[in-house]
C-alpha cells in the first residue's frame, strides 16, 4: 500500500510538470492565429496570376511529352502556394503538415498502384529488362 502511494506521489509530481508544458504548448498554439501581412497576400496573388499566364503560354509551345509535366508542375506549385500561405499551413503544427502530405501520399498509392496494372497490360512477354 505504502509502495503504491509513494509511486503515485511521484507520478503526480511528474504530472504537474507535464501539464505545465501542456499549458505552454496550448498557449503557443493559440498564437498560431498568425496574421499574415497584406503584402504577402497580394504578392502570392500576383505570383499565382503570373503562373496562370505562364501555364497558358507554355501550352502553346510544343515541348512534346514535357508539356504535361510542365503543366502539372506549375499547377502543383500554385497549389502549394495556396496551401502554404492562404491556408496558413506554414504556421500550423507538424500534425497539420502531416495530414496534408498524407493526402497526397494515399492519392499517389491510388494512382500509382492502379497504373501498375494498366502500365503492364501490354506485356504479353516480359520486357527485356526482366528477361
Amino acid at each position: 500500500m505504502l509502495h503504491i502511494l509513494g509511486r503515485r506521489a511521484l507520478s503526480v509530481g511528474r504530472l504537474t510538470a507535464l501539464s505545465a508544458t501542456m499549458q505552454l504548448r496550448h498557449g503557443l498554439l493559440a498564437m498560431s492565429g498568425h496574421v499574415t501581412s497584406l503584402k504577402v497576400y497580394i504578392g502570392i496573388f500576383l505570383t499565382l496570376m503570373f503562373l496562370t499566364g505562364v501555364t497558358v503560354a507554355v501550352a502553346y509551345v510544343n515541348l512534346g511529352q514535357l508539356n504535361k509535366v510542365v503543366a502539372l508542375g506549375i499547377a502543383t506549385f500554385k497549389a502549394s502556394l495556396v496551401v502554404w500561405y492562404f491556408m496558413h499551413v506554414k504556421y500550423q503544427s507538424r500534425l497539420t503538415k502531416l495530414v496534408v502530405v498524407s493526402g497526397f501520399f494515399f492519392l499517389a498509392i491510388l494512382l500509382g498502384l492502379t497504373m501498375v496494372d494498366y502500365g503492364s497490360r501490354e506485356w504479353v512477354n516480359p520486357p527485356a529488362s526482366l528477361q
Binding site: D117, S120, R121, W123, P126
Partner: peptide, 14 residues
C-alpha cells in the same frame, strides 16, 4: 486491393 481482381483481366505482372 487488386487481389480481388486476379481473374478480372488485370495484367499478370500487376
Amino acid at each position: 486491393w487488386a487481389h480481388h481482381m486476379f481473374v478480372s483481366g488485370i495484367s499478370v505482372y500487376a
